[in-house]
Design a protein around this nucleic acid. Structure first.
Length: 886
RNA sequence: GGGCGGGUAGCUCAGCGGGAGAGCAUCGGCCUUACAAGCCGAGGGUCACAGGUUCAAUCCCUGUUCCGCCUACCA
């Protein structure tokens, strides 16, 4: 092989695009219903059509891709369904901004033209994120890409809406809802973000209708007073027990308001009396219903005061507050103001302060659906991993309020309901009705509202597979195997998919839900543009390579904890990718004329190093498989990292160099078989994490064919398992470690020639040393390894080390200062003393001896023997060195 | 207010009843023909605090404290 063809460092930019195209060109991501194998399916959490790739997406999709590639290599019939949602409000906002820059708006355009504009926008800019996912290496079946506004999915939306309506699970009614005055639409409870605000509590006097005096109420929102229809006090409040007055006069507007009694009022809080504004407050609304109060809406859709607000009509809500307060002062009805922190809702899309407003909206009656969805998890039909999230899930399901699904925007699925102008009946239908179902009238107008985007997302696991048609995909891939998502959309999306899946498919939408953490910055802050702490995944990929970036995410994705990402970390794993690259480079340089077809099976090698590495890679394979099956991505990544770098590269490759560079062709051939076998397996194990570099190397390696992504994932094979080789190797490594420690600590230059003497009490140890002395010499740069006989005189002027019960001597006369050696041994002695004192204390404890399990006691005793043996030797050696020094 | 999670080496984090670990950073030595994006060696922690259970606790229980997050109708 021409070495020039292999650069010294791995260059991701040169290969990533090439291999992604190769995979796509060869249709390797394609899922076919007819293909054999057990099904393994995942639907992607659809990103917004307006979105661009951020860290959350990167983590989420990396984990999915790891699972999908892993399962694919294991022979499953894999479907990873990609797509996007239409993000009603967000997308409409984007296009509206575009229109604004052109000096126009959607109302000037009209509904139809506007929708066309949105589609144009979608064509041109929408779905950038899908290409970014490709950059990430995501192996989705792109031929199936779905969009919630597509025809098929829209059909599913209609079917679901109509069915739920017919079943009485969707209704229309006047309720108080969250209103965003900027987006001018209703929002679901979930879409409101609460934020603590330093506000104020205003105390206002409401004069009694008859005669003197007044009732003081406290409020954070004085402007809503215009819509008051009562004041409430607690019937148990002694201050009002014998209240003669039945009415107060609403300040400024002078409307007569009843005084009502309700236990809801907290006697202790504020003024102990509450103004009731049923049309502008959730609690007041409930009280209003209970006491059959009038409901007066004093604000319009833009958050300005309405005609009902008298002279304040037309004023902005905040401006109105100032004015009201001033007017109250003028009329001497303003009592005082107290600083008060409270939570205020904001629109999750545009952060505008939410206005609770009484309004006619469409709702889903969630309780019956939620009950089913809870049961499915209780019964284990769906498993939530990690299980801690189950509690949140149940909590939410049990306290759920009806879901407001209508939005007063244009971009989205228009609600399939028609109003009859003649009899005012509502007709809900799958297709545009010809006439009113009640009176047969023809003057029908379709509802102008559209549905909440999450309504269509809730159908994603089956709408993407062709439902409501009888698609073969539904039989093959539903329920999906796993859903991978962040906890931030557990309620928004997961819970709702559970409800809809169970209701319409009669089965859960997924068997496992793996909830991963959020990606935060180094300080643990949520990444956000406004904080300026965003790490751009594309920049990371550009800088360090996609494989390194993906591996970093996997390695940090421990269950139940946030992922704190730093560039340093990515850099570290970039080095790992490079390490793999270079180990491969060495391998390829040494297998130029190697023909795997005629080579002996790897397990026939008699070389300890070969047997050991075969056994190790075999066991690591099992570890990785187990970890991935349990979604312990970090452990899987850690296991391969540790093995590939610190066992394969640091030890194995170094150990076989003499064979590779030697003359013995037979031995060479045998070891090459082991080397290539091991490297191939490492690459396969790594492929789900690092698809690009592994594919690149795969094609250069002898004994491989086709793409690594459709090669078979390694499995544990008994024929490779050699625990005895592992034991021997651990021993040899310990001896090598002892000698290296002496070299390092005593500053013996790497060039200096040394001899190592080893006193091993057991025959097995002596044999292992004799058989592998070349190994020890190689890795310690020792000229000679003397395996000492029993009772043999210890070499003079030596530095010493003890490994288990084996003593190591390295004569260093003239090479070192023996004062250093004394210091080194003393340090070792202190360490041993500590351990001995802990262990001996345990063994002195009779309760321990009596109550602890036998094997634990035995282990402690053995440990004690080793420690004290070691201690003796170290002490003797101190004495010897002192003698040498005179 | 309720719920959940967390405080482990300088930093970021694993581990979670019987030997305190990793990566990065630090210190010492090496351009050894795969790799200086590297190799060899080393130092560093009363595992937040206080009790309890246990032969044994970083790990289990209770309390305290600090920090996150979710959720909620005290105006």
């Amino acid at each position: 092989m021409n070495i020039d063809a292999l650069p010294k460092g791995y260059e991701p930019s040169l290969v990533e695009e090439k291999w992604y195209r190769f995979w796509e060109d060869n249709h390797l991501f394609r899922a076919e219903v007819e293909n054999p194998g057990e099904a393994y399916s995942i639907v992607i959490p659809p990103p917004n059509v307006t979105g661009t790739l951020h860290m959350g997406h990167a983590l989420n999709n990396t984990l999915q891709d790891i699972l999908v590639r892993f399962k694919r290599m294991q022979g499953y019939n894999v479907l990873w369904m990609p797509g996007m949602d239409h993000a009603g409000i967000a997308t409409q906002n984007v296009v509206e901004r575009q229109l604004a820059s052109e000096g126009t708006d959607r109302h000037a355009l009209g509904r139809e033209r506007f929708i066309e504009r949105v589609w144009e926008w979608r064509k041109k800019y929408g779905g950038i994120i899908l290409n970014q996912l490709k950059r990430l290496g995501a192996s989705c079946d792109w031929s199936r890409t779905r969009f919630t506004m597509d025809e098929g999915l829209s059909k599913a939306v209609k079917e679901v809406f109509v069915t739920l309506y017919e079943q009485g699970l969707i209704y229309r009614g006047d309720y108080i809802i969250n209103w965003c005055p900027r987006c001018q639409t209703a929002l679901a409870d979930l879409e409101v973000e609460h934020e603590t605000i330093e506000g104020a509590l205003y105390y206002i006097n409401y004069p009694y209708a008859n005669g003197g005096g007044s009732l003081t109420v406290a409020t954070t929102r004085p402007e809503t007073l215009l819509g008051d229809t009562a004041v409430a006090v607690n019937p148990k409040d002694p201050r009002h027990k014998n209240l003669a007055e039945t009415h107060v006069l609403l300040p400024l507007l002078k409307r007569k308001l009843p005084i009502i009694f309700d236990e809801y009022v907290d006697i202790e809080f504020g003024a102990g009396a509450l103004k009731i504004t049923p049309a502008h407050d959730f609690n007041d609304f409930e009280i209003g219903l209970k006491h059959k109060l009038d409901m007066i809406r004093v604000m319009d859709d833009q958050g300005r005061m309405s005609e009902q607000a008298g002279k304040y009509a037309g004023q902005d809500r905040f401006e109105c507050r100032t004015n009201i307060l001033e007017d109250l002062k003028k009329e001497n009805l303003f009592k005082k103001k107290e600083a008060y922190n409270h939570n205020v809702g904001h629109c999750y899309r545009c952060k505008t302060m939410i206005e609770p407003i009484l309004s006619k909206q469409w709702f889903v009656k969630v309780a019956p659906l939620a009950e089913e969805a809870s049961q499915a998890v209780i019964q284990g039909k769906t498993k939530i991993i990690p299980a801690v999230w189950e509690k949140s899930y149940f909590e939410w399901m049990n306290n759920i309020r009806d879901w407001c699904i209508s939005r007063q925007i244009w971009w989205g699925h228009r609600i399939p309901a028609w109003y009859c102008d003649e009899c005012h009946e509502i007709t809900v239908a799958r297709t545009t009705p010809e006439e009113c179902t009640k009176c047969g009238g023809h003057r029908l107008r379709q509802e102008t509202d559209v549905l909440d985007t999450w309504f269509s997302s809730a159908l994603w696991p089956f709408s993407t597979m062709g439902w409501p048609d009888q698609a073969p995909e539904l039989n093959r891939y539903y329920p999906t195997s796993t859903l991978v998502t962040g906890f931030d959309i557990l309620f928004f999306w997961v819970a709702r998919m559970m409800m809809m899946g169970l209701h319409f498919m009669g089965d859960v939408p997924f068997k496992d839900v793996y909830i991963h953490a959020l990606v935060r910055d180094e300080e643990g802050q949520k990444m956000s543009k406004s904080k300026g702490n965003v790490i751009d995944p594309l920049v990371m990929m550009e800088q360090f390579g996609t494989d390194a970036f993906r591996f970093t995410l996997a390695a940090l994705a421990a269950q139940g904890r946030d992922v704190r990402l730093s560039e340093k970390r990515v850099e570290g794993y970039r080095n790992f990718v490079n390490k793999i690259w270079n180990a491969s480079r060495l391998t390829m340089m040494n297998v130029v004329d190697f023909d795997p077809a005629t080579a002996p099976p790897p397990e026939e090698s008699g070389l300890l190093a070969d047997q050991w590495i075969l056994s190790r890679v075999n066991r690591v394979t099992q570890e990785v498989i187990n970890s991935l099956n349990e979604y312990r991505f970090n452990e899987a990544a850690g296991a391969i990292y540790q093995f590939a770098w610190h066992e394969f590269c640091d030890w194995y490759i170094e150990m076989i160099k003499p064979v590779l560079y030697g003359e013995d062709e037979r031995a060479k051939n045998q070891t090459r078989a082991v080397l290539t076998h091991t490297l191939r397996n490492i690459l396969k194990l790594l492929h789900p994490f690092m698809p690009f570099v592994t594919e690149e190397i795969w094609h250069k390696l002898p004994g491989t064919q086709g793409s690594i992504m459709i090669s078979s994932y390694p499995t544990f094979e008994a024929r490779f398992d050699r625990p005895e080789a592992d034991t021997t190797m651990t021993f040899i490594m310990g001896i090598i470690g002892g000698i290296r420690n002496i070299r390092g600590e005593m500053n013996v230059s790497p060039g200096a020639v040394i001899t190592a003497h080893v006193m091993a009490p057991k025959d097995a140890q002596k044999m292992a040393l004799n058989l592998n002395s070349s190994l020890v010499k190689l890795l310690t740069k020792a000229e000679e390894l003397v395996v000492m006989a029993e009772g043999e005189v210890k070499p003079d002027a030596s530095a010493t080390a003890v490994f288990e019960d084996v003593e190591i001597f390295v004569p260093l006369k003239g090479l070192i200062d023996f004062a250093d050696e004394i210091a080194r041994l003393t340090k070792e002695q202190t360490k041993l003393e500590k351990e001995i004192s802990v262990t001996s204390r345990k063994l002195a404890n009779e309760d321990f001896l009596a109550k602890a399990p036998r094997d634990v006691v035995a282990k402690e005793k053995e440990k004690m023997t080793i420690l004290s043996g070691k201690m003796d030797k170290v002490k003797q050696n101190v004495i010897r060195v002192k003698q040498i020094m005179g």
